[in-house]
Structure formats: C-alpha cells, structure tokens
C-alpha cells in the first residue's frame, strides 16, 4: 500500500497497533481541514505491528496528551519533504483537561468552570492522580 509522502507536516510514528483512532480523537484531528492519513497495522521492527498518523500540515501537536497516552510514540516534523525534527516523548508531569475524574465524590463533578487536572504520582507504574481528590486516573 502506498501513501503519498508529505512535504510539510507531522508524522506520529510508533503508535501501538490499534491505538491510532484514540490518538486521532484525543488530538481533535477530526476538526482539521488538512489531509490526515491513518495507517493501521504497518509492519514494525520494534513493535511487530504499529499504527502511524500522517498529517499534511504543520499543526501544533499537544505532546503532553501524546506522552500521556504512550510515551514511546515518536513525533517527526517534516519540512520541505525531509525530516526536520524527531521528538521523543516523556510522561508529562501534569495533564489538563485531557481526561475527567471518574470519582463521583470529587469536587470536579459539581463545581463549574474548573479544569480537570491530573498529576503524575508514580512514573514507574504510570500512575496519574486527580489534583483535587487524588483518585487514580482510569
């Protein structure tokens, strides 16, 4: 299968197989006007199978969101058809308004106008906890 290479844009690579649509949604890519290609189950030396997202525009990617979903993803910035920058992700220390607290007793369930903030409390186990009630992110 051939997909045109992009001249200027972003390639999100090394996505765990089957996760591309989740990332598409988290990054709100359905609201972009540019061409977006989602490649599922591409062969990968490292992962066996992987997903790739190619975006034919120099859009701003929220690296914290991507890092939260999977810090092993790589983000390649393409300019004039060549790889200009390769970004390796890290688990973000804090994520804001990416996920919502599921604890029914949390203040975020009733208080209007406050952000849903989660903090990384255990990097080894990738545990995030709500900034308000400390419930574990699900």
């Amino acid at each position: 299968m051939t997909i045109d290479s992009i001249k200027d844009g972003v390639v999100i690579d090394h996505i765990k197989s089957g996760k591309a649509m989740d990332i598409y949604k988290f990054l709100n890519l359905e609201h972009t006007d540019c061409q977006v290609a989602i490649i599922k189950n591409a062969s990968s030396k490292k992962l066996g199978k992987k997903d790739i997202i190619k975006i034919a525009s120099d859009v701003q990617i929220d690296l914290d969101v991507l890092g939260y979903i999977d810090p092993d993803i790589t983000v390649n910035i393409i300019r004039d058809g060549i790889l200009a920058e390769k970004k390796h992700l890290e688990l973000p220390k804090k994520i804001t308004d990416v996920i919502m607290c599921k604890n029914p007793r949390c203040i975020t369930t009733t208080e209007q106008g406050i952000s849903h903030v989660f903090k990384l409390t255990d990097a080894d186990s990738r545990v995030y906890r709500c900034m308000y009630c400390e419930a574990k992110a699900e």
């Binding site: 604890n103 007793r105 949390c106 203040i107 975020t108 208080e111 406050i114 900034m131 308000y132 009630c133």
Partner: peptide, 13 residues
C-alpha cells in the same frame, strides 16, 4: 468542611 473530595483545593485556588 465539604462533602466533596478536593473542595478545599478549589477554595485555596
């Protein structure tokens, strides 16, 4: 004192 967990964090902000 508040029945919702984390309410004092909001208050402090």
């Amino acid at each position: 004192r508040h029945p919702k967990e984390g309410a004092p964090v909001v208050a402090a902000m």
